[in-house]
Design a protein around this nucleic acid. Structure first.
Lengths: 135, 135
DNA sequence: CAGTATCCACTAGGATACTG
DNA sequence: CAGTATCCTAGTGGATACTG
């Protein structure tokens, strides 16, 4: 079953004709905890399995394996097996994955901005704790 | 616990100083199945609880309730209670949520593009089935 | 209308161990 | 190195019913 006729029923107004359907389609393939992180790791030059696992910290081998397969299925990643000097397996991003650049970039920008904002926010418990330590 | 010192340990190279950390921070607050959809629904003018539930098709009252609370906690949504003509509860996006616009827009654009690509892809089983019907 | 309460099913994903 | 196999738990979130 593909995504196509999934959003065609029961919606009253603004649903199908637009944004909600589009983000639904997007999240369907790049949503979840790891997909974008793996893509970023690949874009930073990590191509071997264990490299990736080290770079995307916290991901288990099982999960990384699954993610790579899904990313391959969806056309973002290509798996290459070289045998020439020795057997080497490398993953690389496809050109199609480049279409995600605006998404990635805006997400990265926003994440940095948000982190900065959180840190400079004076209202959380952190400052209270600090003052308690001072006292 | 806030996001701050979550990404400070065990990473070797490109992790902390950049993109992976940033998307991590971003996904931490806007990741998941519903957050962005609820924000979009709100941006389209749906402000009452049941409106939202109807617009974001598939979401249950319980989940919508939780999502709204989290969005409020993270500063994206404000909950207003009016009592003047009658008791009316409305949700509205904050200005901070506007900072998500680039993310939303790129995601929407990509989703539309991706859907179009999937539909025009000749290689899936769909066309085979169609041909079987023709034969 | 705007939720809350309960119960329950599913599954993403962590831990650990193992293999070619 | 590049995974696979198993097992198992925590959390997401659907269904349904109920409340002020």
């Amino acid at each position: 079953m593909r995504i196509s006729d999934k959003n065609r029923v029961t919606h009253s107004t603004t649903e199908c004709n637009g944004k909600l359907g589009a983000v639904g389609d997007a999240l369907y393939v790049i949503g979840g905890k790891w997909k974008l992180r793996v893509i970023i790791a690949l874009s930073e030059g990590n191509r071997r399995f264990n490299d990736l696992q080290r770079t995307v910290s916290g991901i288990s081998a099982r999960v990384l394996s699954n993610e790579l397969k899904e990313l391959e299925l969806n056309g973002f990643v290509k798996r290459n097996v070289y045998t020439e000097p020795a057997v080497i397996i490398e993953y690389e991003l496809t050109e199609y994955s480049d279409t995600l650049d605006p998404v990635l970039q805006s997400l990265i920008n926003w994440g940095e901005m948000h982190r900065a904002k959180i840190k400079s926010d004076a209202k959380t418990a952190i400052l209270l704790t600090d003052q308690a330590e001072i006292a």
